[in-house]
Design a protein around this nucleic acid. Sequence first.
DNA 1: GTTAGCACTCTAAGCCAGTGAGTGCTAACA
DNA 2: TGTTAGCACTCACTGGCTTAGAGTGCTAAC
Lengths: 342, 342
Amino acid sequence: MLNRRKIKILEAIINDYIESAEPIGSRTIARKYDLGVSSATIRNEMSDLEEMGYIVAPHASSGRVPSDKGYRLYVDEVMPKRRLTNQQAEFLKQSILQNLNQVDLLMHELSRAISLLTNYTTVAADIMAQRHKIKHIQLVPVDDGIFALMLITDQNTVKNRVLPLPEASGVGLTTAARISAELTRILGGASGDELNNLFIGVTEQRFMDLHINPDIAAPLIAAISEALSSADNVQIYTSGVKNILDFPEFANLEKARAIVGALEEKDGLITLLADNSEDIQVVIGAENENTMLQDCSIIKAKIRINEHFFGNIAIIGPTRMDYSQVVSVLRNMAFEHKEEEG
Amino acid sequence: MLNRRKIKILEAIINDYIESAEPIGSRTIARKYDLGVSSATIRNEMSDLEEMGYIVAPHASSGRVPSDKGYRLYVDEVMPKRRLTNQQAEFLKQSILQNLNQVDLLMHELSRAISLLTNYTTVAADIMAQRHKIKHIQLVPVDDGIFALMLITDQNTVKNRVLPLPEASGVGLTTAARISAELTRILGGASGDELNNLFIGVTEQRFMDLHINPDIAAPLIAAISEALSSADNVQIYTSGVKNILDFPEFANLEKARAIVGALEEKDGLITLLADNSEDIQVVIGAENENTMLQDCSIIKAKIRINEHFFGNIAIIGPTRMDYSQVVSVLRNMAFEHKEEEG
DNA sequence: GTTAGCACTCTAAGCCAGTGAGTGCTAACA
DNA sequence: TGTTAGCACTCACTGGCTTAGAGTGCTAAC
């Protein structure tokens, strides 16, 4: 079906288009890429490629532009693996190493770094945060009748809430510590959902059995459950939104608006980040389910560093984005990252 | 200088322009606003207004558009006070009441709510977070040699850091609690800067005096100081970026880019939010120091609710923004907000 | 001081022809 | 049979030209 030459030509078209964003004609290819055949031959091949759906002509007598199908073939079969420069690799590595202990900082720096390296827009989130389980609960008095609640999850992430507990007015550090220990013992290992189910319609007696004043326990457990399971709780880290406006395909204000809008819609972004079974997944143009992003391509990846899963990340750019570069950056991100010895 | 009629005319021009974004001519004013004089008279008055610099003509034979100076006069002297509808006031009130306990949630909801109410872009931050003082320190073991550090500040805000303390490997809850108490006793009341100064070049002996292993105390104090004082620590809450792209003045891609870029630059935003001596301050067009925002107007306010200062907020829109509406929303925000009784 | 009338200005929109890049097809060539 | 040269054709884009419409400034009359 696709002979070697056709693939060469498709590759040339894609490479040129990634760079110029202009439809590209047979003569240009003949001149710029040394394929050893004339523009007429290339013209014939391009005609075939168009018939097969790998490229399209924006209008009857213009050059050709890769189609989604063309990009798909390129990404799946043709695209070369690229290596980062030492400088780039080092930059990425440092961004990661300096924040390995704290998920929120890591996500923030990672999306910033990748956005800087690629010049595309980056979105990251720990969408699994909704399913973390309680490992430790710590209650600390903050002010009269106001308490800070700190949750440590099985993923070693920390969340906190400040909440009023008028019934616990006067409760000091020691008592708060005792309640903390009690709660940790009872609730440890549970996820937000489980908490919810567990405590729907509980009786006061139940709380008494737990040796905790129900007027204190009930709002506390509600707060814990809310902090753990609410979707509000998933923090989205966006970086490089401005970059997307620099691409000529978004000079069209409608499209620019659609994208900026999509980048502000948390639910949509979570769905977008959630849906990836593979480690690195490329979604091209209309393949995207989010209609506001069908003029874009998205490269999603799991953030897995040193065997540990931190969350998901997506790089968003025009369909003519530099897939090869982005994929190589994401591969690099998943490397083993260790402090240098000595 | 400015007689009553001139002011009426200026007001008419501004009101019309806020709505239509089109230059407005004498005949239109004569028809739409019942000033009891002919278009020729209005023409003469407009000629005067132009000479005085309150309005400008984009080109020789077009209608007039308010100048920055015109808006300034309007904002300072002419603009009517408006009342929110009950629905709007209630919406704002609920957004505030439901999050009064926790600064981060409050800022987030507030900027979202105001952006929804006004259809402009909103930015909020607690820029004073860099100067908060320590009220309570809580250290909790998370994993072997890894600890969660929770700081409660004098403003009842909570910050946390996760950090490795290899030297404290094996330290359990009880010991961690003791260290927490010790640190709270020593460092309570200090700001991040003070901590920094206090512990530059301290000797090991000093830590021994504090009854804490120096290998543990040093990184802990460094983390505390970093968490309190770093500028990274100021969280920016942005909402409604898409809105700004809906205004025809930003159909010009250059301007759209400038703004979206400015909204991603944390330092710039902090400067912007920081500089306001008054409770509500209007910055019009070129008055703005940030060159990227000189095509915009910005209305800044202190977030002061129930006598408590939470941070700063800024509403960003085109220079023809609806100053009156935004100011009334911000005034409403500062009301006394209490739960209804019964 | 106000108004009607009029000539003038300038933009935006529509139209048209010319240009150039690119195509598809055909016929000749190796 | 695959490749190439040649040629007619298509179509977007550009620049010049015209027209319509909104608005101004000025003058003279009320």
